[in-house]
Simulated scan of single mutants.
Amino acid sequence: MVSVLSIYKQRLRTNPKLTNALMTGFLFGSGDFIAQVFFPDAQGEKVKTFGFDYDINRTLRGVVYGSCVFSFIGDKWYKILARIHLPGDSRYAIVNKTKDAIARTAVDQLVWAPVGIPLYYFVMSVLEARPVEETRQKLEENWWPTLKANWMVWPAFQLVNLGFVPVQHQLLGVNLISIAWNTYLSLRNSRNLERNMVHYPPVPE
């Protein structure tokens, strides 16, 4: 584990964008893998892969979203958050860090979260080649429940992450915690997908 972390830090210094893209894609894929393997009864559409009820294309969609969308937006976003500093007394470093962490977390949860959540469902719908009406329905059904769940999970973690973790490692910290969160997103997206299949049955051949 130590050697893996050392390699990650080295790659982060030499090629940060590619390293973050690969790591983020891997962790989003891991979340979907956990969702499909450990919560099979909660799945919607299932596709046989090597004789198993495992949809490899669904996992690849998670990898694509993580690598090509979230990693680059997340990298820029955390650099923006790192620039937020509130006025404070230089004698009280911990107080200053705490105030900055609260401000950054507030911006993250009140600005990014309401935008990032529908972005996920929109991109996944595009990758699933879903009709426009189906995509709209997915956003309407999932935006508010997912945002409420987000506010129950992320603020406490982000207070620590945004205040005391070096900015170059903040996305990694988010991604590691996100394995459980990505599992939740994958499960919710698949259940929504199953309901939409009832509303929009395949066209008969």
Results as ranks from 00 to 15, higher is better:
K17F: 15
D55M: 00
G66M: 09
V69H: 15
A106H: 07
A93L: 07
L18R: 02
G74S: 15
T183K: 08
F122Q: 05
N57V: 05
F52I: 05
Q10K: 13
E134F: 14
G74D: 14
A149R: 07
P114W: 13
T135Y: 00
H169S: 02
T49A: 10
I34Y: 12
S3L: 09
E140C: 06
K97H: 12
L139V: 07
E205F: 13
N150A: 00
L5P: 03
G51A: 06
I80T: 08
L12H: 02
I179N: 13
K76V: 13
L162E: 04
L127T: 03
H169F: 12
N189I: 04
R61Q: 06
Q10C: 08
R91Q: 04
N161E: 06
F164Y: 14
G173E: 03
L162G: 02
N196G: 12
P155D: 12
V95A: 06
N142P: 05
Y54D: 07
I179W: 09
N150R: 00
K17H: 15
V174S: 09
V111P: 06
P16E: 09
L86W: 05
D75L: 10
A106I: 12
P114S: 10
P145S: 03
L193F: 12
F33P: 06
S71Q: 05
S178M: 06
W143V: 13
S190N: 15
F122R: 03
A82C: 06
Y121E: 02
F33H: 05
Y121H: 10
G29V: 01
T183A: 09
G44F: 14
P155L: 11
T146G: 07
D55K: 00
E141A: 15
Y121V: 05
D100P: 00
S190T: 14
V126N: 03
E140F: 07
S125L: 01
V37I: 09
H169E: 03
D53T: 04
N161P: 06
P155R: 12
V64A: 04
Q170V: 00
P118D: 02
L60H: 10
Q158Y: 08
T59Y: 02
F28C: 14
L110K: 02
N192G: 15
H169C: 03
V111Y: 14
L176Q: 05
F33A: 09
K138M: 13
L187N: 04
N57E: 06
T19W: 11
W181L: 03
K76A: 12
L60F: 15
N142M: 13
W77Y: 07
R11I: 00
D75S: 14
A42G: 14
Y54L: 15
F26R: 06
P118S: 04
W181A: 01
R188V: 13
Y121L: 03
G62D: 05
E140H: 11
V107M: 10
I84N: 07
S125T: 04
N189W: 15
V63R: 01
R191W: 15
A93M: 02
R83V: 10
Y120L: 08
L22N: 05
Q10M: 11
G173I: 08
G31M: 03
R188I: 14
